[in-house]
Design a protein around this nucleic acid. Sequence first.
DNA 1: CGTCTAAACGGACTACGGTCCGGATAATAT
DNA 2: ATATTATCCGGACCGTAGTCCGTTTAGACG
Lengths: 205, 205
Amino acid sequence: MWDVSFIPLRPGSLSGPVTERSDAVRNRERLLGAARELIDECGADGLTMDRLAERAGVGKGTVFRRFGSRAGLMMTLLSDAEADFQARFMFGPPPLGPGAPGLERLVAFGAARIAYVLEYGELARAADESAYNRFDVPAAVLWHRHIELLLREEGMDADPRLMAMALSATLDPERLLHAVRVHGIAPERLAESWRELVTRVVRGA
Amino acid sequence: MWDVSFIPLRPGSLSGPVTERSDAVRNRERLLGAARELIDECGADGLTMDRLAERAGVGKGTVFRRFGSRAGLMMTLLSDAEADFQARFMFGPPPLGPGAPGLERLVAFGAARIAYVLEYGELARAADESAYNRFDVPAAVLWHRHIELLLREEGMDADPRLMAMALSATLDPERLLHAVRVHGIAPERLAESWRELVTRVVRGA
DNA sequence: CGTCTAAACGGACTACGGTCCGGATAATAT
DNA sequence: ATATTATCCGGACCGTAGTCCGTTTAGACG
């Protein structure tokens, strides 16, 4: 059994010099701790980079050197949950993981993604605010490829890549959160609607 | 034939006092002219509210009083094209307008929307940056309702509202633009994929 | 222990969207 | 023409994300 390293949410987060200076390590941990505190107290939207720097007792430059941007920080905070989610749909038990038919895995994927968004939605939304490359973040590419793979497995004859793109759009955190929070749509109805959607798309093949 | 007033892209843009002071009219026109100039020269992303105010020879406060926000300005700039688009799918000739079967109208709607986004994409994206209520802007609600209506017409048995939501997500300007500009996907392939998608969704009923 | 250097630090600085309010002015009434 | 007032104007001001660069320091080497 080989090493199962997950796809990072944030590009480049695995690069850089192998050893990190001790003050860098200390500051990174201070910052992550302070960030979690602030999010507990004020919500993700209430976290500003200035306040974070102040709370962590660190200069503002340090915050940006560590995380690159606000979105990068949010991705880092999400990375544990994200790694867990990835492990579950790639290597976990069926129907989410391998072993079940493609269609069932697709249905389960949507349900799991909806649950994920409901739990970490604010963070996910904040992590997506990065303007231009939200769709090319490694984790997003992985979800996309996963959906595409399952579509192919089900014999999708239309362009599977574009179909996967269309289906991914449906699971966008901002939209899901909006449906639930603003329109008061029950998460189960969203999951049910996803089931209908993928079933029709796959069956139509 | 009654008055066919279009659904405004921007909420509240029809309210306010009936008569506008002459200096207000003059400044609004100066601002719209300057905005079009700046977008021609620097693209939509290169338009900042400060530069716009300066170019129009007007105070910054005036810009925000007129348009409320940067997104509001972009919506105003789009409103002609938007009104035209709305008129075409609501009252124009088939297959986009009434007279064709629901499925054909859906297919045509997607194609028209894709063409619209390709033409006015930058503006549309800038108009959507308004954070929280992009999905509840009147024009977006109208597209949504239109799709829902056509789905019902085709006898959609699953929740038509949520299905319409899923299909709308696919036509999101940001995603479409990203697919074309970054991934180099040909617009015709997007339209074809949309056709496959709605066909399967409707046929699966 | 002293020297050296690459890495990290910090906070002043910029650009931007958006707000506010004292002052100017167009429309109207007299 | 003058006075009145509701509307509009302008630009100083604020909070925020992100950058820059002179200064500090961890840690390796002699």
